[in-house]
Design a protein around this nucleic acid. Structure first.
Length: 752
RNA sequence: UGGGGUAUCGCCAAGCGGUAAGGCACUAGUUUUUGGUACUGGUAUUCGGGGGUUCGAAUCCCUCUACCCCAUCCA
C-alpha cells in the first residue's frame, strides 16, 4: 500500500481503533441489469480491497429488487468479473431477493409504529404532491389512515389483490424536508411481474432505499460504500435503521466519486444502447469499457487492479485519462509476454544475393526481461517487411530502410536497398535488396552501423493471420451519444503475416508484436485454420508522435474570467453595527462585516467586550470571535458551547500581556472547546507560558541549524521559504512555547 | 432557485497552521539490434477568485464563482 491512505481507509481505521466495529464487513452490491464495467472494477477493488486490508470480508450481493429489468445472465457476468479480478466472496452469493420476507416484516413493523402508510394517490399526484426543489411538498390525505387499515391494505397488496399503481407503501417522514429524498419516500410498489429468482411469489417489491440499508444490516455490514449520487439517500438510510431501532452495530454509508474515463461511456443505459444498437458486437466487444470487453481484448486482471490502485479514491468528480489505463497494461505485459515478429502491411523484399535458407535462433524476451525461451525463425531470399518501414523520400530523422540507408532485419542480417519496383500507378510493390553475409545478428563483423532494426517474415514460411486493430470507440473526449462514435474504432487486417512459431508452438496467448504493440489470441474466434489476434494496446511511439506534431492543433485557450457576484446588502441594524465596529472600536471592515452579519457572533462579542472592562482590547477580541468562535458557532448554538465570553476575554488578555503566544492561544482555545476549562488554568496546568528569553531559545536554534545543513545551504542560496521551516522546527521542539516573533528574529540573524 | 457535494500541474491525487508528495502525460539526455523497456534530469513562487486572522495559510474565518447530485412506483 502506498504512503498515504485514501479517505475510506482512514475512516475504517478510525472505526476499528475506536472500537465501533470488531470486524470490517463490506459488500459489492450491483443490480444485475447490465454487464459490469471498469467503474464497477473500481468499486470491487475498493470493497474487496478494504475487506482484505483489514482482515474483514466482503459480500457479493445482487441488489435485485426490480423484477422488470434484472436477469440471470447479468448475475453470471457479475460473478465472472469479480472472480476474474481475483477476489472471492467467501461462501455464497447474496441476493436482496432472499431477504424479501424479512424486509416485508420490517415494513409491517414500520406501519405498526405509525411510521409508514399506504398511499393511494396515482403516479402523477405523487409527483405533484412532492413539490419541487424550491417548493415544499404536501402530504397525501391517505397518510391519515389507521394502522389497522394500513396493515390490511399492505397485506392485500402483497397478496396481489390490487392493480399496479393502485397503492404504494411510503415512509411517513417530512413532506417539507429540504432533502427531496426525505419527502415520504416510497418503500414498496406493486409489481405483478415475474422475478428471475423469486418467481411469482411476490406482488410487492421493496424500493432501493428501503431494501439496501436493511440488507446491509442483515448481513452485518460495517461500511456501506457507494458512489456520490447516493449522498442524498444517506438520510433515509439512517432514518430506516434508526426508526426501526436497529442501532447496535449497524452499517454507515460512505460515498466516493465514480470513475469516468475519457473517450468512452460508462453509463449502463448508453452501454446497453451500443450493444442493442449493434454499434458493437456484444457486451464483450473489445472496444467497450466492460470487464468482459477488457478481458476479451486481452487486458490482464493485474493491469486493471493496478489501474484502480493508481487512480486513487476521492470525492471529486473526475475524468481519468485513458492513457493511464493504457500505461497499466503496457507496464504489466512488458515483463510478461514473448516478443515475436509480425508484419501487418506487407511489402515484399527480395534479397538478390541470398540463396537457400536457414533458421535463426532468436530469444523470445529482450535483454531486460529476465525470462528464458527462444524459437527458430526461418530466413530466405524472399521476405516481407512492414510497408512503412521503407520510404523512398524519407523525412529527416527517419531511421528505417531507404534507398540510401541500410537497416537490420531484427535477429538477422543487415540489408541494403538496391532497387525499388513500382506498378503502373507508381505504387511500390517490391524492393530488391542485398544482404551483408557478415552482419548476422550476434556475430556481426561487418562494421556497418544502422539506425534501427525492423520486423520481417520469411515469405514461404510465414502464416497468414487475422489481426483486429482497436482504437477508441469515441472520437470525442466526453462523448454525448452515437454521433460521437469513432468510425475507425475497428480495423480488421485479414492478411497479416506472422512468424510460424507463434502459431505452431503457441508459446503464450499474449504477445508483443515487436515495434507494434501487445496482442492477444482471441479466446473465441481463434482457430488453427484462422488465427485471430486482438490488439490490446500499442507500444509508445515517439516517432509517430513526432510526425503528428508537425501540424499541431491550434488550441486557443480562452482564459476564464472570474465573475464576482453581488454580496447581499446589510440590513439597517447590521449597517449600524458595522459602522459602530469600524469607527468606534477600530475593527477592520472584514472582521466588522463578519460580526455585524451574524447575531450569535455579535452578541457573543458584546458580552465578552463588556466583561473585559479593566483591559479592553476590542480588536483582539473581535479577531478571535470572528475567526475561532465563529467556527464553533457554525453548527452549534451559544448554549451548546462549553466556553463562555468571560473565558474568551481572559484568553485575549493573556495574549495581550504576552503570557502566551497567539499560537498557544489557539491550542488553549481548542482545549476550551473540548472541556470548557478556564484558559488561565489550562495554561498553568500544562505549563504553556511563553518562552521569550533569547538565551533559552538560542541554543535550540543552533541545534536545529546543526542538524539541517542541507536546508541551511538552500536557505543561504536564496530559498527564503525555509525560514518557516526553521521557525517551525524550533516551535516544535519547544512544544509551541517559544515566542515565534523572537524565534523569527533569531533565526534570521543566525542564518545571515 | 431549496438542499447535499466538490475545486491543489494537461489528467488523477497526497497534504489537516511550519520546505507544494507521488503516478500518468509531456520534455531533454543516457543505455538499447524494439523510435519499446530501464535509468537520470526538467516540468505548480503557488492550491477556483477576492478579502481577513497569524511571526507564518493550500490548510482557520468571511465572501464570491464554477461544476456535480436530488423533484423514477430505477438502483
Amino acid at each position: 500500500m502506498s504512503e498515504s491512505k485514501d479517505f475510506l481507509r482512514t475512516i475504517v481505521e478510525e472505526d476499528l481503533k475506536s472500537g465501533k466495529y470488531k470486524e470490517i464487513a463490506t459488500r459489492f452490491p450491483p443490480e444485475p441489469n447490465g454487464f459490469p464495467h471498469i467503474g464497477h472494477a473500481k468499486s470491487i477493488c475498493i470493497n474487496f480491497g478494504i475487506a482484505d486490508d483489514y482482515d474483514g470480508h466482503c459480500n457479493l450481493r445482487m441488489d435485485d429488487t426490480n423484477p422488470t429489468t434484472e436477469d440471470t445472465q447479468y448475475v453470471e457476468a457479475l460473478k465472472d468479473a469479480v472472480e476474474w479480478l481475483g477476489f472471492n466472496w467467501g461462501g455464497k452469493v447474496r441476493y436482496t431477493s432472499d431477504y424479501f420476507p424479512e424486509l416485508y416484516d420490517y415494513a409491517v413493523e414500520l406501519i405498526k409504529m405509525g411510521k409508514a402508510y399506504v398511499d393511494s394517490l396515482n403516479e402523477d399526484e405523487i409527483r405533484e404532491y412532492r413539490g419541487t426543489v424550491t417548493q415544499v411538498g404536501k402530504r397525501s390525505k391517505y397518510a391519515e389512515r389507521s394502522v389497522e387499515e394500513n396493515l390490511d391494505l399492505f397485506e392485500r397488496m402483497k397478496k396481489g389483490e390490487f392493480q399496479e399503481g393502485e397503492h404504494i407503501l411510503r415512509a411517513k417522514i417530512d413532506m417539507t424536508a429540504a432533502n427531496m429524498k426525505m419527502r415520504d419516500p416510497l418503500l414498496y410498489r406493486i409489481r405483478h411481474a415475474h422475478h428471475y429468482r423469486s418467481g411469482d411469489e411476490w406482488h410487492v417489491y421493496p424500493m432501493y432505499d428501503f431494501a439496501h440499508c436493511l440488507s446491509d444490516y442483515i448481513e452485518g455490514i460495517s461500511h456501506s460504500i457507494c458512489t456520490l449520487e447516493f449522498e442524498n439517500n444517506r438520510d433515509i438510510y439512517n432514518w430506516v435503521l434508526d426508526t426501526l431501532g436497529l442501532t447496535s452495530t449497524r452499517p454507515y454509508q460512505h460515498e466516493f466519486a465514480r470513475l469516468g474515463i475519457n473517450y468512452t461511456v460508462m453509463s449502463k443505459r448508453k452501454l446497453l444502447e451500443l450493444v442493442e444498437g449493434g454499434q458493437v458486437s456484444g457486451w464483450d466487444d473489445p472496444r467497450l469499457p466492460t470487464i468482459a470487453g477488457y478481458k476479451r481484448r486481452g487486458y490482464t486482471p493485474e493491469s486493471i487492479l493496478n489501474f484502480c490502485d493508481s487512480i486513487g479514491i476521492a470525492k471529486a468528480n473526475s475524468m481519468v485519462d485513458v492513457a493511464q489505463l493504457e500505461f497499466s497494461i503496457r507496464d504489466d505485459l512488458n515483463t510478461k509476454v514473448p516478443r515475436v515478429l509480425c508484419v501487418l502491411d506487407p511489402l515484399k523484399v527480395t534479397i538478390e544475393n541470398y540463396e537457400g535458407s536457414e533458421e535463426i535462433d532468436a530469444p523470445y524476451y529482450p535483454h531486460d526481461v529476465p525470462k528464458e525461451g527462444s524459437r527458430k525463425i526461418p530466413f530466405s531470399k524472399e521476405i516481407y517487411i512492414e510497408r512503412d518501414d521503407f520510404m523512398e523520400n524519407p523525412p529527416k530523422g527517419y531511421f528505417r530502410l531507404t534507398p540510401d540507408q541500410s537497416v537490420r532485419l531484427r535477429h538477422a542480417y543487415i540489408i541494403t536497398c538496391k532497387e525499388v519496383i513500382k506498378d503502373a500507378d507508381g505504387n511500390i510493390v517490391e524492393i530488391k535488396a542485398e544482404y551483408h553475409p557478415d552482419s548476422k545478428s550476434g556475430s556481426d563483423t561487418s562494421g556497418i552501423k544502422v539506425k534501427s532494426a525492423i520486423q520481417w517474415v520469411s515469405a514461404k514460411e510465414a502464416k497468414t493471420v487475422e489481426v483486429r486493430l482497436y482504437d477508441r470507440l469515441f472520437k470525442d473526449e466526453a462523448p454525448e451519444g452515437l454521433e460521437d462514435i469513432n468510425p475507425d474504432s475497428l480495423q480488421v487486417i485479414q492478411n497479416a503475416l506472422i512468424e510460424p512459431a507463434v502459431i505452431t508452438e503457441k508459446p503464450d496467448e499474449r504477445f508483443q508484436f515487436e515495434r507494434q504493440g501487445y496482442f492477444y489470441a482471441d479466446p473465441i474466434d481463434y482457430t488453427d485454420e484462422n488465427p485471430v489476434f486482438n490488439k490490446i494496446v500499442g507500444l509508445k511511439d515517439s516517432w509517430g508522435k513526432k510526425k503528428k506534431e508537425a501540424k499541431p492543433a491550434p488550441k486557443t485557450q480562452a482564459k476564464k474570467v472570474q465573475v464576482d457576484g453581488e454580496v447581499t446588502p446589510m440590513s439597517e441594524t447590521e449597517e449600524k453595527l458595522f459602522s459602530k465596529y469600524t469607527t468606534e472600536l477600530g475593527l477592520n471592515s472584514e472582521v466588522a462585516n463578519t460580526l455585524a452579519r451574524d447575531d450569535k457572533l455579535s452578541n457573543f462579542y458584546y458580552e465578552a467586550l463588556a466583561l473585559s472592562v479593566d483591559s479592553p482590547n476590542p480588536v483582539g477580541l473581535a479577531n478571535i470571535v470572528s475567526n475561532e468562535v465563529a467556527r464553533e458557532l457554525k453548527e452549534k448554538s451559544v448554549d451548546e458551547l462549553k466556553f463562555n465570553p468571560i473565558q474568551i476575554a481572559d484568553l485575549v488578555k493573556m495574549v495581550d500581556d504576552e503570557t502566551i503566544s497567539s499560537k498557544i492561544a489557539k491550542q488553549v482555545f481548542e482545549e476550551m472547546v473540548k472541556t470548557g476549562e478556564d484558559p488561565t488554568q489550562i495554561v498553568e496546568v500544562r505549563g504553556l507560558i511563553q518562552i521569550s528569553d533569547p538565551a533559552k531559545i538560542s541554543p535550540i536554534i543552533d541545534e536545529i541549524i546543526a542538524k539541517n545543513p542541507d536546508n541551511v545551504a538552500k536557505f543561504k542560496a536564496g530559498n527564503t521559504k525555509l525560514l518557516g521551516f526553521f521557525v517551525g522546527q524550533v516551535l516544535k521542539t519547544t512544544g509551541g512555547k517559544a515566542n515565534p516573533k523572537v524565534v523569527n528574529e533569531l533565526v534570521a540573524e543566525k542564518l545571515k
